[in-house]
Design a binder for these strands. Structure first.
Lengths: 174, 174, 174, 174
DNA sequence: CATGAATGAGATTTCATTCAT
DNA sequence: GATGAATGAAATCTCATTCAT
């Protein structure tokens, strides 16, 4: 069992995280396109070139930011959300989780709101997939609620999920 | 009475509109940042330099696209929305108007969803003001509904407006 | 005998002069390169395109400004300068003429001082020839003075002429 | 004691100088305005972008060329000029210094003669100040000579300095 | 003749990425 | 592994010149 699988962090993992956090702060401050790689490097406290030892480039960096944020979001709250007994309560917990998670890291929330929208234009399927994972989780809850008769069936689950996301995303700003 | 005051269009007006429409198509296709001025020129059927006879640059072009879209949106539907007798019905008509307007011009809808989010980073107050105009209209309806006792008072009108926008904006995509 | 040869001015001549004067004012204000053709047009009170009916382009316009200024300078003062009896007095009158001519039209003086230096780089032989005409007049006076024994012979006439020009040109500014 | 304080040159200093020299050659060949940044880069043997790591742009580059040339001119000859015992001899040494300095670097002399005249139009006070420094040195010599009774007092020192400059500048060309 | 809207070649400048140290 | 100077492709914008009206 190596250090990674034991949940410890190699030096490389630390560097990766350090850069990702620099990227979040930098993207939030100026938006993806206005952010120079050198801004990220400065925010992360590393040299420009170092970024390329850990990421493929600026695009990859945004993809990883989004991916890792969703992963950690779900890692943290999945159990809590799913152990609620009704679909309505699961949705409530999901909303609560989203708001508290985004509320805790306003920079991340900004990146989500601003750059996630823009990303399909240049990240292509990668970003679509990341976002889809998020929606699917909500859609699943809705679908199960509809199957059990608990929720109305006049909306497609995915549409419902999008509406939920729309509200949450907008709310986070205010 | 000259041609302009009779609602007709001068050549310059036509050119302006031609370029704005090219810009909408181009922004929708690739996103604001990936769109080159020459893409817009090509989409509009004019030379690159012509753009600068009518707009200050790419930034101005996006600002004008957003501004003009909101103006024409509201010009078209204001009477219809406000003549409804209850706040609930006004909101309903607003939603209907938004969806039909955006549904008719998917490119414009895309620009709204994608680039309006990004625009505060570089358009500054201009874009904030444009967006704010939109929200204020919804917020006004909500506020009047609350004043008349028709709507619940546990939300600030502006927040409610943001939620409405969030849902609509997200729905338009699907 | 047509109107031109009688010293009268055709409408075309007037236009030409009008444009030349606009050009002098515009060049003096911003320098040849910073001056746009449209600046000249505005200063002359004509449309941009009109300039091309009378001149070949911006370069030609500067060449004509310089040429016409020297012609009119010499037209005006040649007799006065040459009728002086000694070389020294001729030089004195030349200096007097230069200073009064340039003093009367500060814009023209500025164009001379600033753009004449730059012009060989893009007007080529044209500008060199214009300048050479000026120098030759001074050099001739010097040469005749040397021939008659009135002036020292330890300088080439052309060099002497250049020194005279150097001093005068610099003086005009102050 | 680091390398810089020992009069040695850091890599950055070398690059700077390398670019400045490329700029002098390029400006001399085509004049400031006809010179493209890429011409300078080629003359200096660096990539276009490298220029911007050391200078703010073309304008800054010309200002630095002029400034550095005057500094090195005066660094080199100040002692020699000022140790002469009479004002007349000081002026003589100044002339000698100017001619030998400019004679050694014809490209620099060309830049001086051509672009220094044009520069007030876009370098503004920067170029005026650079030129003024030069004139002041001559004017000081003249003023001291006048104070001691050695030189005539019928000219303002600054005017005298301008005349000296005018002659020298013109002479360097021939 | 005169106009001025339109053109598009060409110049400046930025910045993601590489690679010698 | 880490650095950051250097690169050069790519994008914006200007403006001399043309030509349909």
């Amino acid at each position: 069992m190596n250090s990674k699988s034991r949940g410890e962090s190699s030096r490389a993992d630390l560097r990766r995280r350090q850069i990702l956090e620099g990227a979040i702060r930098a993207f939030a401050a100026r938006g993806f396109y206005r952010t120079r790689v050198s801004d990220i490097a400065k925010a992360a406290g590393v040299a420009d070139g170092t970024i390329y030892l850990y990421f493929e480039g600026k695009d990859d960096l945004l993809a990883q930011v989004l991916r890792q944020a969703l992963d950690s979001f779900w890692d943290r709250g999945e159990a809590y959300v799913l152990e609620a007994s009704s679909a309505a309560e699961q949705l409530g917990r999901f909303v609560e989780l989203h708001l508290s998670y985004m509320g805790e890291d306003r920079d991340l929330a900004t990146v989500f709101q601003v750059d996630l929208r823009h990303s399909p234009h240049f990240l292509g399927d990668v970003s679509r997939k990341i976002f889809r994972d998020y929606l699917d989780r909500v859609a699943d809850i809705v679908a199960r609620g509809q199957a059990s008769g608990e929720l109305r069936r006049d909306l497609f689950p995915l549409q419902a999920a999008q509406m939920v996301f729309g509200v949450l995303d907008q709310l986070v700003t205010s």
